[in-house]
Computed example of a mutant assay.
Amino acid sequence: MKKNRLLAAAAVFALVPFTAFADECVLTIESTDQMNFSEKKMAAPASCETVKVVLKHTGSMARDMMGHNWVLTKRDDMQAIVKEGAAAGLDNNYLPQGDDRIIAATEVIGGGETTEVEFSTAGLAGEKMTFFCSFPGHSGIMKGSFEVK
């Protein structure tokens, strides 16, 4: 009887492709009214074909007062995107629209809200990337490194 269960379990695992389990490909980060992220470094296994980042704003302030988003770019592109994003305004989530330098981005959310973004990891392994909040004045503090490894 035990042998049959082991064989059945082995058969099930044989059907599962050799990729990362779903929870390794879903990353959660929190933001606060004190203008910070809960993480300074984030990483996803290279075996994840896509990554989902879930942003939770644990504060209580409104999105137009202390809103936060999560933006991923190559490290060298961050400052230009922050500058151009400020001019784009809140209606555009403080991001230049249609900008190919933005790898992934969530909408700007306020306290108590949650948002998410899913993106492909194709070509990202080994890239030097930064995540940040593009709300004006936040990126100096609210930023960190992101790796696909």
Results as ranks from 00 to 15, higher is better:
A125Y: 01
L15Y: 03
K74T: 05
H68Y: 02
D64M: 03
G85A: 12
D91E: 14
Q34W: 10
T115Y: 11
P96F: 04
G123I: 07
V16P: 00
A10N: 12
I109N: 06
E30Q: 14
Q79R: 03
T106N: 09
S134M: 08
I103N: 01
D100E: 15
T19Q: 13
R63P: 00
S60C: 00
H68M: 05
M142G: 00
F37L: 08
M66R: 11
V12L: 14
S145G: 13
I109K: 06
A43W: 02
M78T: 08
M1N: 11
N4H: 11
V148D: 07
A104D: 05
E30S: 12
E127T: 12
K2S: 09
S120W: 08
A86N: 10
A43Q: 14
T19F: 08
C133G: 10
V16W: 06
F146R: 02
H57I: 05
F13S: 13
D33W: 04
A10L: 13
M1C: 06
G112E: 08
V117I: 14
A14E: 10
G67S: 09
A14W: 09
P45W: 06
K74V: 02
K74R: 15
A43R: 11
H138I: 00
G110C: 05
A46S: 15
K128F: 05
H68Q: 06
K3C: 02
C133Y: 08
C133T: 03
T130N: 08
M35F: 10
V26Q: 06
A44T: 06
N69A: 09
L55W: 03
A44V: 07
K56V: 08
A43L: 02
G89I: 09
W70L: 09
E39L: 06
N93L: 01
Q34H: 10
I102R: 04
R101K: 15
G137K: 08
S38A: 12
K56G: 01
N4S: 11
C25T: 04
D33Q: 12
Y94G: 04
M129R: 05
D91M: 09
Q97M: 12
S139V: 00
F119E: 04
G89H: 11
R5S: 11
K56T: 12
A125S: 15
V108S: 10
K128T: 13
K41H: 13
D76H: 07
